[in-house]
Amino acid sequence: MIIVTGGAGFIGSNLVAALNARGMTDILVVDDLYEGRKCLNLSDCDFTDYREYDDFIDLVRRGHDFGPVEAVFHQGACSDTTEWDGRFVMARNFEYSRSLYEWTTARSVPLIYASSASVYGMGPDFVETREAEHPLNMYAFSKFVFDQYVRARTSASQVAGLRYFNVYGPREGHKDGMASVARHFSAQIETTGQCKLFEGTDGYANGEQRRDFIHVDDVVAVNLWLMDNPQVSGIFNCGTGRSQTFNDVADAVIGWHGQGNKHYVAFPAHLQGRYQSFTEADIAALRRAGYTAAFMPVEVGVPRYLDAIAKTRES
């Protein structure tokens, strides 16, 4: 059995679909379906069991035997960066993850978990060292604390954390305002004919702020590679290693639609000094660990994503 927490969410559901593509269907999906629209992410997937998020961790803490477990992909979390209830976030993210760590390591089950590039705060360095880490909100802090917990311990079984950068791709429709800029730009082209981008800030020209945008298929590929290589443990950046501009994303969206233009809006005052104008994953550690596959640039990944959206609508 494979266990996927957050299995109805964006990255988790793509993982379930990818496992299915390998012929693997003995999957326990764990999620919180208070946001019921997430169920649509799994409507084309096969799995053998489902547990609500809180029920599952209660079983874990009581030492429940789920039978032979090949790996746990821990993707579930409170990912709302505006949530400042520290006790809630730490219980949902850190304490939950710690319980899973204790359960998996006691049974020699590989644990592959989602960390976040948000631990780096404003940067400017994005390398997996303590010196580069400056979390600026509770979500980032909770991920940072669990990474610290993992670093302070040794395990005979695999424990691998992936610090996701700006992930985009299919099965994120339920995220609304938290969805990727590629999705927002596409919706804006369809409704108004214009992509809205920020004017220049932090020394960058209009729309030239840069992020490390990574397609969810590449994120899934790294997760599955870790499962295939249980000798690899550690905390790794999961980005392309190459930043691209918001203009690049907008141009890819406009090119796919064959129409539209860019419109620059004033940079919001409330984001001054709190906005990442630049992110770029240092992926040297991941390469040293043995991951050799190439990552899609937005010129390839965005059209692939929009093709998937169009195909879903047609079906």
Rank of each mutant, 00 (worst) to 15 (best):
N14A: 11
A21Q: 13
M24A: 14
T25E: 15
I27T: 01
V29E: 02
G36R: 14
E52P: 09
F56L: 12
L59H: 11
D65W: 08
E70C: 08
D85W: 10
A91T: 10
N93Y: 03
L100W: 01
T105Y: 07
A106T: 06
A106N: 03
A114G: 08
S118F: 13
S118H: 13
G123Q: 07
D125F: 12
D125P: 00
T129I: 10
P135I: 02
F146E: 12
A160R: 00
V167Y: 00
V167D: 03
R171V: 00
R171T: 00
A182E: 04
A182F: 04
F185S: 00
F185W: 02
S186A: 15
Q188Y: 05
E190V: 08
T191H: 08
E199V: 07
G203L: 02
G207D: 09
F236Y: 07
C238D: 12
G239Q: 10
T240A: 11
G241C: 10
T245W: 05
N247S: 08
H257A: 12
K262N: 03
H270I: 05
Q272V: 15
Y275S: 05
Y275H: 09
A281Y: 03
R288T: 15
Y291R: 11
P297Y: 08
Y305Q: 12
D307G: 04
T312Q: 10
R313I: 13
S315G: 10
S315K: 14
